[in-house]
Every structure is written in structure tokens, then in C-alpha cells.
Design a protein around this nucleic acid. Structure first.
Length: 721
DNA sequence: GGTAAACACCTTTTT
DNA sequence: GGTGTTTACC
């Protein structure tokens, strides 16, 4: 393979980025402009043209999926094995560094990664143990505080008491949390990054080794990096100017979880010799869609600046539909989808995108009643399920009994008579003497500090854990897992649970055994971890798919956030209302509002062929009726790119469109605009207007099947739905 | 220790 | 209004 074959499938801007000499490079890649392609070809360029070995390449992404894709595409393009190339997520790579240099990182060899659920449990427990009021210091907020500090590289010992009691308590918990994690050999997600940073920062020889090894460093989705991630990248590359970052400031939608869009600006300061390349040619969407996206995002300030264009034609106009309420909205959307399918379209080419998960319900119901297959993204993932986490806790305990998080989790699951009192005493002892719960239990048993019954129960548990380890010696991984889920009593526990739920739990545990069987133990990259350790790490670092992939052709339902990076021929952006999108909390903060606008930009640019925007003039929100105004983003999209859809009955709507909604109430107040009603003969419908009073009061109703009718309230038999 | 009632919550999410 | 979590009670 020569230069031309790496370069020829690229456009001018892509080519410029891929073939540039080694230097700091910022590639501003608009939506659908081929950013992954540029990364992959850039790596190929280094390997083939600059004759770098795969070991000299580092490539960092945010998700395992993106890492896998990049690796596969490099392998496909060059027809090589990219195994020895460090491609992975920030967390995955940090973990790898820590495993390899556990000692220098001041970690026990057996350290385990915990997920945010484990972390939250630990915080809750600490609050209780420290007698801190969890209404004034909510566990979630404490967790957030700890992670935010770590992401800024700040440890508890770096923080001064600023005299504020609230802050002092936070700090105290942070400190206790760090101690507990150290004692238990537990590392949370933020800790992976922070410790990997400290490891390189404090060990010159290590740092030099890796700086020499990684001759080219590539970063995907650079706009999503947080402080510590960027600091880590700088350690590895500053002075060498070998940092190649790809990102899009207009698609930065994770500021709320610590992503620093400013890193893009800092990059330009920190790497003065850098070059900027803009990828603006879009290969995804048609003209009107791009125009809408461009004009919308132009309302933001302090952008790097970028305008998408396409060689494809104008395409179809965007469509705007004003629904009466959320049911009508769902009805409309699903009808359009059915039409699409009738016209030969695939359901999997269709996405319904919403701002918040709660909005999915209406659409699910409608899809269900029409028998349209669909798939909802989000929710619990495989390794996050309770039964799976319980099974993993047993496995972790048998590998490392000092893992307090796992100990707490299963000490009394299934119930074995170890009650709150016993545990409380144990926690106090553990805290006072800085012991793990495991050590504390042994101490209490040795000192006969427990009533006979509790002592027997606790001894039983300790023996069980030890026995699990002994029994499974020499077992294959899946045999170990199988033995543990059975011998721990988990299978029996869930078999007894009420039919439906228990059954799926047992199935999931069986699936876990299966996952262990399929687990690909890559001993080369194992960093002297056992297969079990590696499996447990895999479970924490990669929580797995949301649900089993069905091969059925499904309509895709997801939040705007999870749609990032995906594309669909037909897209519905629903709930385009003030208070929903942009969300209420964002409306009074210009910074957050701009992030909402970027989110809208992300949504629009998901659409390849057709984009529908919908909003409801009335919506039940938290059990109350609301009459939201249409989203400001609708007004920002140029009118000439939008086609406004009229009602199905083809009657001009009684309600004002974009602007103030008519919220005139009928005199009875019973039939409000947008109210769903049922009529004996005409079926279900929606109230459009009311007029008159008392005997003369009439309502206009749009019946789903019978069309629009005026009915006298005095005679019509109407029920509210 | 398991269930039912009371209660708080209510963006977005990956590792 | 719907859901998940804590509390109260048997």
C-alpha cells in the first residue's frame, strides 16, 4: 500500500489533515464530515508512510464502541493486526497503565475497578457511619463533589478548610472515602484518570519511556475531554507537538459532566506550532437540513466557526407539526412512520429523538398498539443489573476479601441472618481500627463479641467465601462463574422470586456464565492479571449493551444525547417546547442555553433525508397540564427551510402556531384545549375549541376516526380520558 | 425479613 | 403522573 491509496479516497481537507507532517493538529470536524475516517487514515499514514510501528501509536476515544470501530477500521484498511496498538478509552488506557505499574501507582496488585453505583453505595455508607445528615448532604451530591475534585486533579489533602461547615463535611467524607478505597483496593472511574496522571507526573523514567514509545497521539471527540484527561495528554505530548486531536466545538454537549470545551482553546495556546484543519463537507444530510443546522448554530457565540455544505441536492424541506397534546404528537409520528414503512422504508432507518427519557412513553404506547417493532436506548445495562452485580460481588470477594463494597453488597444476600445490628457494629469497628469489613468480622468473631446466632451466620458467610475460592481452583472462568452463582445461593434466591422477575434474573445469571464462556482472554495484553480479574474489570469498564440486540427491524427511540454519532434517514425531533427543549433549568443561563442549542444542532444533523420537528400545544407534565410555548430553536431555523404541516382533517388550526398558544378555557373548565375525550359513537378525540356557555356550550373535537365535529355539551355524552 | 404505604424526585450519561 | 426508595408495620 502506498501513499496514494491512503490519500485517494479523501477530500482536500481530509487529505491535508491525514498527510500533514508530524505536528500538533486540531481537526475541526463537523457532523458527518468523516472524522473517524480521518483518524483511521492518519494512523495508517504513520504506519505505512512514516514507517512507525503499531506500538508507536496511541489513540484515545470516549467509548469502547468508538475504540473498537477505530481498531477494526485500521485493521481493515491496512490488512494488519492492530493488537499491539494502544487504542482505547481514556479509562481503559489509564487502567492498563495502572495495572502495569501498580506498585509505582501505590495500588495493590489486586485492585479492582468499581462503577458509579458501587461508588454511590460507599458514599451512602460513609455518611451513615460518620453520622452525617444525608438530607443536608445528599449522597448523590457528595459523589458529584468527589468526582468533580478528582477531575480537576484535586485530592482531599490538597483542599483547605474554607471555614464553611457544609464544605468541611464534604471534605471529611472525601477524605474518608479515599481511605476506604485504598483499604479495599477499589478504584473509581475518576480515580483511574487521576492516578494515571499522577503516575506519569511523578515518575520521570516512566514518563520518558511512554513519551518515547508513543510517537503519535490521537484523540477523538476532543471537545468532550475534561481537565484531567487533557492534562494527561499534555504530559505525554507537550514539547513533542505530536498530538492530533479531532473534535467539534459545536457538538460539545457534555459540559454538565465536566467536559471542558475550553480545552480546544487551550490547545491552541499550549501547542503554538499547531495547525487547524476544518472538515466542512458533509456526506450525510441533504441541503435544507444542513442549512437549518448552520443557521441555528450561528446563534451561539465564541465558536471556532464552521459551515457545513454538501454536494448532494437541497433535498426535502424540514417538516413542523404542532400537535394538540403529547398523545396527538405520538399519533402523528407513528402514522408517519407507518407510512414510511408502507412506502418500503426500513424501521431501523427511523429515529425518534427526545430531550428526556420520560418522553419515550407516549411513543412506546402508540408503537405498541400499532404493532410497530421498536427499541428504546438507555436504561439498565447488562453488567449493571442487580443480580449480575451480586454475582460479580461474590466473584470479587473470592478474589479479594477486603473489597468492602462487594462485602456489603452480598453479606446478607441471600438473607442469612446477618442483620443491621451486626453490620453496624462491624462498620464501627472497621472504621475505628481502619480495617476492612472482612478483617473486622474476623476480629469480632475472635473476640466473641457477637450473639451466638449472629456469630454462626457470619462465620457461615466467611466460610462460604473462602470455600468458593477453594472450590474453583483450577476451574475455567465460566466454570468458576457457574459454581459461584449456584453455591452462593443466588440462583435459588431468584428462582423463589415472583415468577416473571425472578425468571429473567435467573436467565441473566445464566447469560453471565455464557458471557464468561465467550470472554476472550487476551493473555498478551493481560498485564499479569488473572482471567477472572480481567473479566471483572471488563464488567466494570464496559457495562455491555443496553439489551440483547434483536435482529428485528426496529424503530429507534433515544435521547438527543445518545443519538450523537449516529445517523438515520428519517428523524423525528419531538417535544420541541420551551421548558422541555431547551430544558427549564437551562433557560436562564446563557452558557447552558448554548449547550442546549448545540444539542439541537446534534439532533438536526442526525437526519440524512427527512427531518420532522414536532411540539405539543398542551402537555401533561409531572401530573399537571402545561401549555408550553414552542421552542425558541424552531424560530431560529429559517422559515423557508420548513414546511408546516396542517392537521390531518386539512382544516386550518384554531390555535395560533409559533407564538402564544390559545389557552381559552371553556366555561365549565372541564374541557380544556387539547383535552382527550371519548364519545360513545365517535370514539377518542381531542378538544380543539370551546364556545358558548351553559346550555349553549359547544366543543369542537377532532376525533381520530370520525374527523372534526362540533358537539353540544348539553347533549353529547363525553368522557374525559 | 418481607410487604405495603408513604415519600421524594423529576434532564442529559460514559467510563 | 409515574417511578424508585425509604420507612412502618406485621
Amino acid at each position: 500500500m502506498d501513499a496514494s491509496s491512503i490519500i485517494s479516497p479523501l477530500n482536500d481537507a481530509q487529505r491535508l489533515a491525514v498527510s500533514a507532517p508530524s505536528q500538533a493538529m486540531l481537526v475541526l470536524a463537523g457532523a458527518g464530515s468523516g472524522k473517524t475516517r480521518v483518524l483511521v487514515h492518519r494512523i495508517a499514514w504513520h504506519l505505512r508512510i512514516n514507517r512507525l510501528s503499531p506500538q508507536n501509536i496511541l489513540a484515545v476515544t470516549f467509548t469502547n464502541k468508538a475504540a473498537r470501530e477505530m481498531r477494526n477500521r485500521v485493521e481493515d484498511l491496512l490488512n494488519i493486526s492492530a493488537r499491539s496498538m494502544w487504542i482505547g478509552t481514556f479509562h481503559g488506557l489509564a487502567h492498563r497503565l495502572l495495572r502495569q505499574h501498580a506498585k509505582q501507582a501505590k495500588l495493590p496488585e489486586t485492585f479492582q475497578v468499581m462503577d458509579s453505583d458501587d461508588q454511590l453505595r460507599i458514599v451512602k455508607r460513609l455518611l451513615k457511619a460518620m453520622n452525617i445528615d444525608d438530607t443536608k448532604w445528599p449522597p448523590k451530591q457528595v459523589q458529584w463533589f468527589i468526582n468533580a475534585q478528582k477531575e480537576e486533579g484535586i485530592r482531599a489533602r490538597h483542599m483547605a478548610d474554607n471555614g464553611d461547615f457544609f464544605h468541611r463535611q464534604m471534605l471529611a467524607v472525601y477524605k474518608a472515602y479515599e481511605e476506604l478505597c485504598d483499604r479495599s483496593g477499589l478504584v473509581d472511574f475518576a480515580e483511574l484518570l487521576l492516578r494515571a496522571h499522577e503516575l506519569l507526573r511523578d515518575n520521570d523514567d516512566l514518563l520518558n519511556f511512554y513519551r518515547q514509545r508513543f510517537q503519535q497521539v490521537h484523540v477523538d471527540e476532543f471537545q468532550d475531554t475534561n481537565t484531567i484527561q487533557y492534562a494527561w495528554l499534555r504530559l505525554l505530548t507537550e514539547g513533542n507537538d505530536n498530538l492530533f486531536v479531532v473534535g467539534d466545538d459545536d457538538q460539545s454537549i457534555y459540559g454538565w459532566r465536566g467536559a471542558k470545551i475550553e480545552n480546544i482553546f487551550s490547545f491552541q495556546r499550549h501547542y503554538p506550532g499547531h495547525q487547524v484543519v476544518r472538515l466542512e463537507q458533509n456526506y450525510r444530510s441533504s441541503g435544507h437540513i444542513l442549512k437549518a443546522a448552520n443557521i441555528l448554530i450561528a446563534n451561539n457565540d465564541s465558536r471556532m466557526g464552521k459551515e457545513l455544505w454538501t454536494e448532494a441536492g437541497e433535498g426535502e424541506l424540514l417538516s413542523l407539526y404542532a400537535a394538540f397534546n403529547e398523545q396527538d404528537e405520538a399519533y402523528f409520528v407513528v402514522e408517519k412512520i407507518r407510512q414510511w414503512v408502507r412506502d418500503g422504508g426500513l424501521r431501523s432507518d427511523v429515529a425518534i429523538l427526545y430531550r428526556s427519557n420520560a418522553q419515550s412513553r407516549q411513543f412506546e404506547e402508540r408503537l405498541m398498539t400499532t404493532g410497530t417493532p421498536y427499541r428504546v436506548y438507555g436504561g439498565l445495562r447488562f453488567f449493571e443489573r442487580m443480580e449480575i452485580k451480586n454475582a460479580l460481588a461474590y466473584l470479587r470477594l473470592s478474589a479479594n476479601p477486603h473489597d468492602d463494597a462487594s462485602f456489603e453488597r452480598v453479606v446478607n444476600t441471600p438473607t442469612r441472618g446477618i442483620g443491621a445490628k451486626t453490620l453496624d457494629d462491624m462498620r464501627i469497628l472497621a472504621r475505628e481500627q481502619a480495617l476492612s469489613l472482612w478483617q473486622a468480622s474476623i476480629a469480632m468473631l475472635d473476640q466473641n463479641r457477637l450473639p451466638a446466632r449472629a456469630a454462626t451466620a457470619l462465620r457461615g458467610f466467611l466460610n462460604l467465601i473462602v470455600q468458593l475460592g477453594k472450590d474453583t481452583e483450577g476451574f475455567a472462568l465460566y466454570e468458576t462463574v457457574k459454581h459461584v452463582v449456584e453455591a452462593s445461593g443466588l440462583i435459588d434466591l431468584y428462582k423463589k422470586e415472583k415468577q416473571d422477575k425472578g425468571e429473567t434474573r435467573v436467565e441473566n445469571l445464566e447469560e453471565l456464565v455464557n458471557a464468561a464462556k465467550l470472554f476472550d482472554y487476551d493473555s498478551e495484553n493481560a498485564e499479569n492479571m488473572s482471567e477472572l480479574d480481567l473479566f471483572l474489570t471488563h464488567a466494570a469498564l464496559e457495562a455491555g449493551e443496553m439489551q440483547a440486540d434483536s435482529d428485528e427491524d426496529c424503530v429507534q427511540l433515544m435521547t438527543l444525547h445518545s443519538a450523537k454519532g449516529l445517523e438515520f434517514k428519517l428523524v423525528f425531533m419531538v417535544g420541541m417546547e420551551e421548558g422541555l427543549f431547551p430544558s427549564q433549568q437551562a433557560t436562564d443561563d446563557p452558557g447552558r442555553l448554548q449547550e442546549e442549542r448545540r444539542l439541537c444542532y446534534v439532533g438536526i444533523t442526525r437526519a440524512m433525508q427527512q427531518l420532522y420537528l414536532t411540539y405539543a400545544e398542551s402537555r401533561r407534565l409531572y401530573g399537571k397540564d402545561s401549555y408550553p410555548r414552542p421552542s425558541r430553536f424552531l424560530k431560529e431555523i429559517p422559515a423557508e427551510a420548513i414546511h408546516e404541516i396542517r392537521m390531518r382533517a386539512n382544516v386550518s388550526r384554531p390555535v395560533a402556531s409559533v407564538g402564544t398558544p390559545t389557552t381559552k378555557l371553556g366555561s365549565t373548565g372541564k374541557y380544556r384545549l387539547g383535552q382527550s375525550v371519548r364519545h360513545e359513537k365517535f370514539g377518542e378525540g381531542v378538544v380543539l375549541q370551546t364556545e358558548g356557555e351553559g346550555e349553549q356550550e359547544r366543543v369542537q373535537i377532532n376525533f381520530r376516526n370520525a374527523g372534526i365535529k362540533w358537539l353540544m355539551l348539553a347533549y353529547a355524552k363525553l368522557d374525559t380520558v
